[in-house]
């Protein structure tokens, strides 16, 4: 690996440490305040709780029933990610490696799509999905989430595919591989870090997305955890029960953090250098 100089190490830790403190302190505040009562929070937000008020967590769990929607969220987000990543990898690969008429137009349409604020699409989408009779199903949310994430995903993946070495591909074609085989057997696996990176970004967006979930679903079979969190936040704000609100925040972070840290290693895993140079 790179020159791991011992000299700069403490300095590096200090600089990184400053930002770490900024993050940890905010999280710390969220955690300690999740054990306090509202009055205590306003008295002194930084103080440690005098007494661990676990009922905040009970209130948050029971009131929002966050975990009832957990499986819905997992299915919706999981399916979306699989479908999204595969079809966008396909499209991004073509847009990156092949020159054809209309290529620039497609790329511009992607950039255009990324700039559109999603809230404006709510009403037209609702009409369309209502006519297709798909409202209030998981499939409906999956369709919407996939479609809304397509521009961002393709855009990032184009960048990744542009940066991949071309020799591998050329070697494969000379060897007689069809384009399709070249992609699935070689380029797709090569781009795995990029795929996981973009998948995890999409995951975070979808995990916390509540507005579309609220509009397009009503029944418990399709409601997501993010919506439960939004409902919790709203109800706690109006009863000024911030203790339970912070408890809810902590509860929402846990599964997201676990899932992210599990896939983290795929994101950072190195590229197989051997195929090119060796």
């Amino acid at each position: 690996m790179k020159n791991k100089s011992k000299v700069g190490k403490p300095a590096a830790h200090i600089i990184l440490g400053i930002w770490s403190i900024l993050i940890l302190s905010i999280l710390w505040i969220a955690v300690i305040n999740s054990f306090k009562t509202s009055a205590e929070i306003y008295a002194n937000i930084l103080a440690l709780p005098s007494h661990l008020h676990f009922e905040n967590y009970r209130n948050a769990l029971i009131n929002s029933q966050l975990y009832r929607f957990f499986f819905n969220s997992v299915i919706i987000v999981g399916s979306t990610l699989v479908i999204l990543t595969v079809i966008c990898a396909m499209a991004a690969y073509v847009l990156s490696r092949f020159k054809f008429r209309g290529r620039q137009a497609l790329i511009t349409s992607i950039i255009f799509g990324m700039s559109v604020p999603e809230l404006l699409l709510i009403i037209p989408l609702y009409s369309m999905l209502s006519k297709m009779n798909l409202l209030d199903t998981k499939f409906c949310l999956i369709l919407i989430y996939v479609s809304l994430c397509i521009p961002f995903t393709i855009y990032v993946l184009i960048g990744h595919y542009n940066a991949l070495p071309n020799e591998v591909r050329e070697a494969a074609i000379v060897d007689g591989c069809s384009e399709s085989k070249t992609f699935w057997k070689i380029m797709f696996p090569l781009s795995k870090p990029g795929l996981f990176a973009v998948a995890s970004f999409n995951f975070v967006w979808m995990w916390n997305e509540y507005l579309l979930a609220m509009v397009f679903t009503t029944s418990k079979e399709s409601r997501t955890m993010a919506f439960g969190m939004y409902a919790l936040q709203n109800s706690m704000t109006f009863t000024i029960d911030y203790g339970a609100l912070f408890a809810g925040i902590v509860l929402m972070i846990v599964p997201a953090a676990i899932i992210f840290m599990t896939f983290h290693k795929y994101i950072i895993s190195g590229v197989t250098v051997g195929a090119i140079k060796g």
């Binding site: 993050i23 969220a30 975070v204 916390n208 969190m229 609100l245 809810g248 925040i249």
Partner: peptide
């Protein structure tokens, strides 16, 4: 460093 991005923005802005 990625942690803040994981959290629901709407909820944490209250903090």
């Amino acid at each position: 460093f990625y942690f803040p991005n994981l959290i629901s923005f709407a909820a944490l802005t209250i903090l």
